[in-house]
């Protein structure tokens, strides 16, 4: 489904690798967690997966389409949820979702159905016509997520989708991500909530200084390393506490 083949990235005006020879294979239907400390290379990898910029070397394939040469096709099948609240604050939730849905080429009728559905799922129906700037952090995060899934993408890329919100909202988002995944969407996400990643992800990769240092199924990895949880394992590998991830 997604093949990352020996990708490396050196930013211009830099001599160091931001990502150093990473290879990953993510199968259809997985929830894949990309975990790492700040500056480890996960955001660079995420940006390359979105096609925002190209790797210095190596290839990325999504559904056998090359990010290097077929990015226009890839953009149609991926959904992206950035870490920032990438919404227009002066527009209502409905107006934001209509706009982003239309940019994915969805027609008005199917969009209306989809928007109604997701707003209901996330308990935001009665706020549909309120401006985003009046929303709480948790509500904004939920709309930010909906904007990335309206077009039912095959692959959903999430960058810290639940950062900075209360536990209740976070759990709600996680619950819905699980449902989305059950309906056939492959999910790749970055997070520094290791406990959450352990519960949600089918597979994880820990990235440090641009390199993958551990990859596999969370439970198996924890068991193999004789650790009590993913957080302990992560700490033993990187020497960083989880809240610095």
């Amino acid at each position: 489904m997604i093949r990352i083949e020996n990708i490396s990235k050196i930013y211009k005006n830099s001599t160091e690798f931001a990502v150093n020879n990473i290879s990953l294979k993510i199968n259809k239907g997985e929830i894949f967690g990309l975990l790492g400390t700040n500056g480890a290379g996960k955001t660079t990898t995420f940006a390359m997966l979105c096609g925002l910029f190209l790797p210095t070397s190596g290839e990325i394939y999504i559904n056998n389409l090359s990010v290097r040469t077929q990015i226009s096709e890839i953009k149609k099948i991926i959904g992206v949820v950035p870490q920032n609240i990438a919404l227009y604050p002066t527009l209502t939730a409905n107006e934001n979702l209509l706009f982003f849905g239309k940019m994915y080429g969805l027609n008005r009728q199917e969009l209306n159905i989809s928007i109604k559905h997701w707003l209901k799922i996330f308990g935001l129906s009665k706020y549909a016509d309120k401006k985003i700037k009046t929303y709480s952090g948790g509500m904004k995060r939920r709309i930010n997520l909906i904007a990335g899934i309206l077009h039912k993408p095959n692959v959903l890329l999430l960058d810290e989708p639940a950062v900075g919100i209360d536990t209740h909202s976070r759990l709600e988002i996680m619950k819905e991500l699980k449902k989305i995944n059950e309906n056939g969407t492959t999910i790749i996400y970055t997070s520094h909530y290791l406990e959450e990643a352990e519960k949600l992800c089918t597979d994880i990769a820990i990235i440090d200084k641009g390199k993958i240092i551990l990859q596999g199924k969370p439970l198996q990895l924890v068991k193999k390393a004789a650790c009590s949880n993913l957080e302990e394992l992560f700490f033993s590998l990187t020497g960083n506490k989880s809240n610095n991830v």
């Binding site: 979105c50 149609k76 992206v80 870490q83 609240i85 919404l87 982003f100 940019m103 080429g105």
Partner: peptide
Amino acid sequence: ENGSFFRLLTMPG
């Protein structure tokens, strides 16, 4: 700044 441009760049078009 608010990231919506980033989102637009990841969309087809």
